[in-house]
Design a protein around this nucleic acid. Structure first.
Lengths: 236, 236
DNA sequence: CAGCATCCGCTTTGATACTG
DNA sequence: CAGTATCAAAGCGGATGCTG
């Protein structure tokens, strides 16, 4: 990217990470940890291969990304975030929070990867208190996206991870938008079911998780701010 | 900008504010409050006029920027951030923090506007405790950039604003880089003076401000992380 | 003057194919 | 697997002109 040519902290940050795709590359490394070129690429549908190579070089030069050859048995290169790159998590977290309301409406053709959803949910739920401190742990499994997501409330904390539970207390299956709408507080269970979501298991488990989520999303985000916000829009 | 086509909070945020210039337009509105097209433009040296018009329209459509005709005596349009736009301050603040270490080296040809420096200093200094709670107020004036900056430590808080003091306890004049280096902790007074900074007034006043700054900038930022970091680099 | 719109040359991106 | 090579299309920067 061409420099903005300003002696300003924001402009200089954007000189480094303001290019198209750059912050999403950092997102992939932040979500996956050290990984291969091909792994990063699979998390960025649509990126041109040469562009990914360019960006990785630029990020390496800027001290954001480190490249190392994996130890002998493996013949591949591993990319990871440097400490300086890790500090960008704060920016990614703010963008996640700001972008949550934008997840209300489905956009036709959008790719869904469960790790993106899991990460956003982790951020929303981390601060919420899911019921009384001594309450028994509950698990909620989401079947949407490319792999299942497991949400667990335990010891006054809620955490989210990829992968199926042996047996969850409750399960939600269906399209990503109504499931996220249900967890983000934009929809109630009846509304989600009307949009094709199937719920099985203990309703109390869902309520525990939803009550934690209610604290993570500001009230203003649950109300429409722009006319026509919930109308589906064509992708691309 | 072309959509990333991902159902991900970060990607959807970047679909709105990830275009070139967009976050800097938000920065200008955040720093200035409601202002005219021409004012925004003067804070974005190098932007093409049609591009600014395009971006403002897109931001308006996205609910980030509001446009209104000023009341009768004035014949102009005022642009401002909506509440949704104000929520981007968190992102701008994190980018400021992340970009502070990038302000160590001067870049030839960079434009300097004092409001950018003032905003970055405000952020760094806001959390620092400048001396004992009951200590008398001190003021430090910076003469650099396009207008003077006044830093005031009072009642255990430090605040920064544009404009000259009637009489400051101390004054720093010179190039922006060594002055910022001095306040950010990359340089001591002797080092700054070696780079042409002139200091007048009470050294204790400078120390009060610097001690507050020391708490705002992580220690790792004051050490070089990349070889050759302090070498000046050509602009553009 | 404020707030754009148009035109044009250049750079960046996207899509696809190919290589060590 | 980790890139390069190629080329058309889109986006950008700079200049200029237009309208109230």
């Amino acid at each position: 990217m061409r420099s903005y040519g300003e002696y300003c902290a924001i402009a200089r940050s954007l000189d480094v990470v303001g290019d198209r795709w750059t912050l999403l590359i950092v997102r992939e490394l932040a979500l996956r940890g050290a990984c291969r070129y091909t792994d990063i690429r699979s998390g960025l549908p649509g990126i041109a291969s040469n562009l990914l190579a360019d960006r990785l070089r630029e990020l390496e030069r800027a001290g954001v990304v480190a490249r190392e050859d994996a130890p002998p048995p493996i013949a591949t290169t591993l990319f990871s975030l440097t400490p300086r790159g890790e500090q960008l998590r704060a920016v990614l977290d703010d963008l996640t929070r700001w972008g949550l309301p934008l997840m209300r409406q489905p956009k036709d053709g959008d790719v869904v990867q469960s790790r993106w959803l899991s990460s956003a949910l982790e951020m929303m739920l981390a601060d919420g208190a899911p019921g009384a401190p001594g309450a028994p742990p509950v698990t909620l499994e989401l079947r949407t996206g490319d792999q299942p997501i497991l949400i667990e409330a335990r010891d006054g904390q809620v955490h989210t991870q990829l992968g199926a539970a042996g047996s969850a207390d409750a399960t939600l299956s269906g399209a990503p938008t109504p499931i996220m709408g249900l967890l983000l507080g934009f929809l109630d269970l009846a509304g989600a079911e009307a949009k094709g979501v199937e719920f099985e298991g203990n309703p109390a488990a869902l309520d525990r998780i939803r009550s934690a989520a209610a604290q993570g999303v500001p009230a203003e985000m649950t109300e429409p701010a722009v006319a026509g916000r919930d109308q589906p829009q064509p992708g691309r």
